[in-house]
Nucleic acid binder design. Sequence first.
DNA 1: TTGTTATATGCCACAATCCGCATATGCTGG
DNA 2: CCAGCATATGCGGATTGTGGCATATAACAA
Lengths: 106, 106
Amino acid sequence: MRIVAYNNPMQRTLSILSALASPARLGAMRILSDGQEHCVCELMDSLGVTQSRMSRHMAVLKEAGLAIDRRDAQWVRYRLNPDLSRQSAALIEAAVNFQEQETDHA
Amino acid sequence: MRIVAYNNPMQRTLSILSALASPARLGAMRILSDGQEHCVCELMDSLGVTQSRMSRHMAVLKEAGLAIDRRDAQWVRYRLNPDLSRQSAALIEAAVNFQEQETDHA
DNA sequence: TTGTTATATGCCACAATCCGCATATGCTGG
DNA sequence: CCAGCATATGCGGATTGTGGCATATAACAA
């Protein structure tokens, strides 16, 4: 997450990859992949992480351009960034689908 | 790269993602994606990293199961792991193709 | 206003990663 | 054997990521 400038494709790719390379964040992306909105409290409960950690994890996903948020009363609803490039979407899908497909020989 | 046990799909996914989340390693995977063998000396020259660094980067890719190596006289030839699962291959392809496709608005 | 719930952030310690440098190891050729 | 090229590894220091804790901010409800 040390990337600060997403000017070039390489940096953008790296920011996405490192954003996904964390159990909590990958789990959050899996949850968000249903296309629905999810508040931080739901995500932290589902993934078993503390509130402050979940908030920071979501900030990383947001900064990488993978998720967007919206204020809704006391809640902040996160969802997948609807303006994802085709390549970003492919990358996310590949990462998220990975786990679910080979649960057999775990 | 803190992952030590690749028992479950989650850990395997994370190890692949963090292995790819580095300029030198992603660059190496892009080079290896031509399906040919490449020695460390070639990779370090192409990517502009020192010898010891390149060696360690390749060790990370190997440990993540993305590449395999072969002794050939004084050289060690790296190539893509031919036994990649379909999901692993999809993940790698998505990451490697990312950069090359959006060179326009960089 | 006060209290409560939800979320974000400042701070600090710890762990993981990264890098360069020196050196070890493996192989070849003389 | 020795010299030289290619690769791997031990080590120490710098950078980065992570986690918990406390606290700030935002919105709501009474």
